[in-house]
Write a protein that binds this DNA or RNA. Structure first.
Length: 110
DNA sequence: ACTTTGACCCGCT
DNA sequence: AAGCGGGCCAAAG
């Protein structure tokens, strides 16, 4: 895995406008490594310190929050709402509405 | 070198 | 709705 993978993912994340969200799969794909969704997860779980990343804007496929029940999931939900993102009772996000503008699953462009 | 472990994903019960 | 199995691939033990 080239060193720039991490860098790219971070950059993409920083470029993501507030109030919008993306997914592990989409990040991996846009970083040039399709099917590497897990690696994005692993990256975010061991975040290089010194970089402040809006990790909470990263969701699982279909707009699901990862590791439901975990402490981070609760935080994520809170932070997202603070961003103005609506969550269903099940804690899911409508990607068509809040998804990454360039992503296929998003219908609401910039 | 081999095995286990993920902040994953998809399709099928 | 919820669980299972298989696929995925790098990192850590």
């Amino acid at each position: 895995m080239p060193p720039d993978f991490d860098r790219k993912v971070i950059a993409l994340l920083l470029a993501l406008p507030p109030g919008r969200v993306t997914t592990y799969g989409a990040l991996a794909e846009q970083a040039g490594y399709p099917r590497h969704s897990r690696h994005v997860g692993r990256l975010l779980s061991h975040l290089p310190d010194g970089v402040s990343v809006p990790w909470f804007r990263v969701l699982g496929a279909g707009g699901r929050i990862s590791r439901p029940g975990s402490e981070q999931a609760d935080w994520q939900r809170l932070l997202l709402e603070e961003d103005g993102v609506e969550l269903s009772a099940a804690g899911k996000v409508d990607l068509r509405r809040y998804g990454w503008p360039d992503a296929h699953f998003c219908s609401k462009k910039l």
